[in-house]
């Protein structure tokens, strides 16, 4: 029974770049894996760093029943602290599913917190005060808790002002694999993102390496949440230019 990998036994072709790669600066595509900068795992430098951050490992492996999506458990362990510096003044944020265009959202959202309260997975949180204009509005941070894309979207049902709407797509963003950080691209085996992705067919694995179909990806962030690479290899981008609702 030949596997897909069996077809790779031809002499390797010279690497090539297409125009899109060039425009996007993907010159690292030309590098063979052996030439990539090696991965380095960095740990907090002091005990205080650990205690002060959410990275502190839980005191004991949790024994409670894990939450699951599609039958595959996603245990809520503390988030990965990648950056303790203050966020820039201006940046895109992830809104809950079904959010209207950002200007309408900011205008219409009453900061009531109902969507935060009903989220069964604690994925929706209020933006903190340091975020200025958006403070108090609902956001999702996949590093802390990914959106699990509930079938019945209680967050949308709970939204009285209607800035979350069933009439709009529930996609909240899209994900991309950053190949030079991805373990599967560093001559080792890792298939976690494809195993945990809650949407069938979004992450495919070919020759051991994952590819995300940006067309069907919902941006839920489960892949980022579970990625075990030394530096998270999943780049999440919020949905840009969300549609407006007729007012």
């Amino acid at each position: 029974m030949p596997s897909p990998a069996a077809d790779d036994n031809q002499p390797s072709r010279k690497p090539t770049l297409n125009r899109r790669d060039l425009l996007q600066g993907r010159l690292w595509k030309l590098m063979r894996p052996s030439e990539r900068t090696p991965l380095v795992m960095r740990y907090p430098k002091t005990r205080a760093d650990v205690d002060g951050s959410d990275l502190a490992p839980s005191s004991k492996p949790s024994s409670k029943t894990p939450r699951s999506i599609g039958g595959i458990a996603i245990e809520p362990v503390p988030p990965t602290a990648f950056d303790t510096t203050a966020p820039p003044r201006s940046f895109p944020v992830f809104r809950p599913p079904g959010a209207v265009a950002e200007h309408q959202f900011l205008a219409g959202c009453t900061r009531c917190g109902d969507c935060v309260d009903v989220c069964p997975h604690d994925a929706i949180v209020k933006a903190p005060d340091r975020m200025g204009a958006i403070a108090g509005t609902p956001t999702i941070d996949a590093d802390a808790n990914a959106c699990l894309m509930c079938e019945d979207f209680p967050c949308i049902s709970a939204c009285e002002p209607g800035v979350l709407s069933r009439l709009l797509p529930t996609t909240i963003g899209t994900a991309r694999v950053t190949e030079h950080l991805c373990l599967a691209h560093h001559s080792t085996i890792c298939t976690v993102c494809s195993e945990r992705c809650p949407t069938a067919g979004v992450i495919s694995v070919s020759d051991g390496k994952p590819t995300i179909d940006e067309g069907t990806c919902t941006g839920c962030g489960v892949c980022r949440y579970v990625c075990p690479a030394p530096e998270n290899a999943i780049l999440l981008m919020p949905l840009l230019n969300r549609p407006s609702l007729p007012s």
């Binding site: 795992m41 740990y43 907090p44 430098k45 373990l183 560093h186 001559s187 080792t188 030394p230």
Partner: peptide, 23 residues
């Protein structure tokens, strides 16, 4: 404190590579 871990390029066994646990 141990603050970083990387694969050892000088090692014949793994030539600078590590598995997910190793990192």
């Amino acid at each position: 404190r141990v603050v970083a871990v990387a694969g050892d390029k000088a090692a014949e066994v793994n030539k600078g590579l590590l598995c997910v646990k190793g990192y």
